[in-house]
Amino acid sequence: MGRYVDGFVIPVPNDQVDAYREMAAEGGELWIEHGALEYFEGIGDDVDPDMGDMPMRTFPQLAEAGDDETVVFSFIVFESREHRDEVNAKVMDDPAMDPENFEEEIPFDTGRMAYGGFRSIVDHET
């Protein structure tokens, strides 16, 4: 059975990138602590590539990001879907995830975040 990935595409206001980075760093530590294999957060850098005549949507279009926003692409890697469900249950039960423990507001509109779980169909690594 191949690995399993939870993936996210999130439009983040430019003036909230530092706050997002702090939140993501804490989240990454939490997911790894509870058993995730890998946690990755990337900020948009080359998100409007020139693909010639090939029709495609860019990440900003996909995320419906405004001029004052950037796109974050992130993923968490697990052994399997079952492992993902176990790890996510532990994370959600962790006191750090209690909204009363949040010192800051979430630095993006959660209603515009895209999320999904993906099973591996091709998996190469070095």
Rank of each mutant, 00 (worst) to 15 (best):
A36H: 00
E29M: 10
G7A: 15
Q16F: 08
Y4K: 02
D6Q: 15
E103N: 13
H34W: 00
D46A: 12
D67I: 05
D6Y: 09
L62D: 02
S80G: 06
Y39H: 10
G116P: 02
P107Q: 04
E41L: 07
R3I: 06
S80M: 04
N88I: 11
V71P: 02
E100I: 13
K90I: 01
G28K: 01
V91D: 00
V77H: 00
F40M: 12
G66Q: 10
D123S: 11
I32R: 04
E125H: 14
T58W: 05
D68M: 07
E38L: 11
A65D: 04
R119L: 13
M54S: 12
A114G: 12
E79H: 07
F108C: 03
A24G: 06
S80R: 03
R57V: 09
D68A: 13
F78D: 00
T126M: 10
E33L: 08
L30E: 00
T58L: 04
S74L: 08
N88G: 02
N14Q: 14
W31H: 12
P55V: 08
V72H: 04
D15I: 09
M51C: 11
D45A: 13
V72N: 07
D123T: 08
H124E: 13
D93R: 10
V72K: 02
D15V: 09
P49L: 04
G116F: 11
V72P: 03
G35K: 00
L30S: 00
Y115K: 12
P13D: 07
A19C: 07
E82C: 04
E64Y: 01
A114V: 13
A19W: 08
I121K: 09
T110V: 15
E22S: 15
Q16R: 15
D123F: 05
P107S: 06
D48I: 10
V87I: 01
V47G: 10
G27L: 13
F59Q: 13
Y20T: 10
M1Q: 09
D48T: 15
F102A: 15
F8Q: 03
Y20E: 06
R84Q: 08
I121H: 12
T70D: 01
P49N: 05
E100C: 08
A65V: 06
M1W: 08
D18M: 10
A96G: 05
E105G: 15
Y39F: 15
F40Y: 13
I106Q: 07
A65F: 05
V5M: 11
F102W: 13
D15M: 09
G7H: 09
E33C: 00
L30R: 01
R112V: 05
S120E: 15
S74C: 11
M23D: 08
D6I: 10
D48Q: 12
G116E: 04
F118E: 03
Y4Q: 03
E104K: 15
E69L: 06
F118I: 03
R112S: 03
E38R: 14
P95A: 06
H83I: 01
P11R: 03
D46L: 12
G111R: 06
P99K: 08
Y4M: 05
D53N: 14
A96Y: 07
I76V: 14
R81A: 10
G52E: 06
E86L: 06
D123A: 10
G111S: 11
